[in-house]
Nucleic acid binder design. Structure first.
Lengths: 158, 158
DNA sequence: GTAGAATCGTCAACGTGGTTGTCGAAATCG
DNA sequence: CGATTTCGACAACCACGTTGACGATTCTAC
């Protein structure tokens, strides 16, 4: 069973998906480093995206990212130290500490979006617009709906 | 510039690639857990693949995986403790310690290959054999040749 | 043949990211 | 008002990565 095709072993598929992801992320951060964000790590971009323009709290951030509130809090600490995020008190609830983007963080987020668009355009040039769209549609069809699971280090390593 | 398509923002592409990778790996390990390998982590399968049937040394393993020999040695330690690998002296060079698969490790590796073939077959059933092959070909065209870079935790996080 | 250089594996220290458990402060519920 | 819940922080721990150092062994060159 499994009707394996000898020249297309199944284990190559995940490696190619990972390589594609990694290529995009590496290219993004090489370009971001050139544009004034050399400190940004792959993980950080996703966290900034999860914080969003309106801000959040550490607990809510942890839920969005699929990690514990403590882990989210630690990552926020580092992004605060790097100048991408800032904390503020919630006027309506003294327990909560709001996490907001700084101008530097907003700049990084905007540039990330622009570079991702450029990289996708590069793939469209290399493969054809329709192939990239088909690739996205196919992946959407075989993966769960919510793509925001950011606990990659702990997930992969254990 | 960048000619962004509003309904297909560039940042979705890496998320979909990651989601595809993650879906395959999660399904693999769910099935491996059922088949007697609940301790195996995503990282470990790749390491076993890199060790291969003939065995290696820690230094060579590190080079194959793109990590330091110390990191490779630590991972080998854990896989030895789990019963997947064993160490032996090299009769020709007393400095080297050969790293070999145990029968349990070989069993895990064989089952991984079989499950990956089944999962790829599942995608072929859902999408069509030609679409999966096209997806692989497209990814091969836009990624560097060697897909074996296993330093994912350190790469992503820190 | 032996002195010097290169290689292998290990140990130690450290950074980053993750986890669980605890705990005080503040809000909410009854 | 008291009991419960929630939020954020602290501590301890594990997994994985790094660099630097150091014996032990092998290779190389004189």
């Amino acid at each position: 069973m499994a009707t394996a095709e000898p020249d297309r072993p199944g284990f190559l598929l995940p490696l190619l998906l990972l390589a594609g992801f990694r290529t995009l992320i590496d290219d993004l951060h090489a370009e971001l480093a050139r544009q004034g964000h050399p400190e940004l790590r792959p993980l950080h971009g996703f966290v900034l995206q999860a914080v969003g323009g309106e801000g959040t709290t550490a607990t809510e951030l942890g839920q969005r990212l699929g990690v514990s509130k403590q882990a989210a809090g630690k990552t926020v600490d580092r992004l605060v130290a790097l100048g991408y995020l800032e904390r503020a008190d919630d006027p309506h609830d003294a327990r909560r500490k709001l996490v907001r983007m700084t101008p530097h963080g907003l700049d990084g987020l905007r540039r990330s979006a622009a570079v991702f668009d450029q990289l996708r355009q590069g793939w469209a040039t290399a493969l054809g617009t329709d192939r990239v769209a088909a690739l996205e549609d196919d992946l959407r069809a075989v993966t769960p709906a919510n793509p925001f699971r950011l606990d990659v280090p702990g997930w992969f390593g254990g």
